[in-house]
Computed example of a mutant assay.
Amino acid sequence: MQGVTFMNNNIRMAGNLYFPEGFDATRKYPSIVVIHPGGGVKEQTAGVYAERLAGEGFVTLAFDASHQGASGGEPRFLDDPMRRVGDIYSAVDYLTTLAYVNNERIGALGICAGSGAAVKASSSDRRIRAVGTVSAVDVGAATRKGWEGKGPVSDELAMLNSVAKQRTAESAGAPKITVPYVPAVGDTSAPKDLQEAADYYLTPRGQHPNAPNKLLMTSLSYMASFTGFDMADTMLTQPLVIIAGSKAGSLWHSTELYDKAASADKKLIIVEGATHMDLYDGKGVDTAMTSLAPFFKAKIA
Rank of each mutant, 00 (worst) to 15 (best):
residue 38 G to S: 13
residue 297 K to F: 00
residue 221 S to T: 06
residue 60 T to N: 08
residue 269 I to F: 04
residue 83 R to I: 10
residue 92 V to H: 10
residue 224 A to T: 03
residue 199 D to M: 15
residue 8 N to A: 02
residue 292 L to R: 09
residue 247 K to Q: 13
residue 180 P to F: 02
residue 293 A to F: 00
residue 193 D to T: 05
residue 234 T to E: 13
residue 170 E to H: 06
residue 160 L to N: 04
residue 65 A to D: 12
residue 286 D to G: 08
residue 222 Y to I: 00
residue 87 D to K: 10
residue 74 E to M: 11
residue 80 D to K: 15
residue 270 I to V: 15
residue 9 N to Y: 10
residue 38 G to M: 13
residue 282 G to S: 07
residue 132 G to N: 08
residue 102 N to E: 14
residue 126 R to N: 10
residue 148 E to V: 13
residue 141 A to I: 00
residue 240 L to A: 03
residue 192 K to T: 10
residue 93 D to R: 02
residue 299 K to R: 15
residue 109 L to F: 05
residue 132 G to L: 04
residue 182 V to W: 12
residue 215 L to A: 05
residue 170 E to A: 00
residue 300 I to E: 10
residue 129 R to Q: 13
residue 147 W to R: 01
residue 134 V to I: 15
residue 231 M to L: 14
residue 144 R to D: 08
residue 121 A to R: 14
residue 47 G to F: 04
residue 179 V to G: 07
residue 227 T to M: 09
residue 289 M to T: 02
residue 24 D to S: 03
residue 129 R to S: 12
residue 73 G to D: 07
residue 132 G to H: 09
residue 109 L to S: 12
residue 237 T to G: 02
residue 93 D to K: 03
residue 132 G to Q: 06
residue 173 G to H: 11
residue 167 R to G: 00
residue 56 E to N: 09
residue 45 T to W: 01
residue 38 G to L: 09
residue 136 A to K: 00
residue 188 T to M: 12
residue 39 G to S: 11
residue 122 S to I: 07
residue 260 K to C: 04
residue 96 T to Y: 01
residue 51 E to H: 13
residue 148 E to F: 01
residue 61 L to G: 09
residue 7 M to H: 11
residue 71 S to Q: 05
residue 146 G to L: 06
residue 115 S to N: 04
residue 126 R to W: 11
residue 123 S to K: 03
residue 104 E to C: 01
residue 287 T to N: 08
residue 174 A to H: 10
residue 286 D to I: 02
residue 70 A to Q: 12
residue 7 M to V: 00
residue 262 A to K: 14
residue 98 L to Q: 15
residue 69 G to E: 08
residue 158 A to D: 11
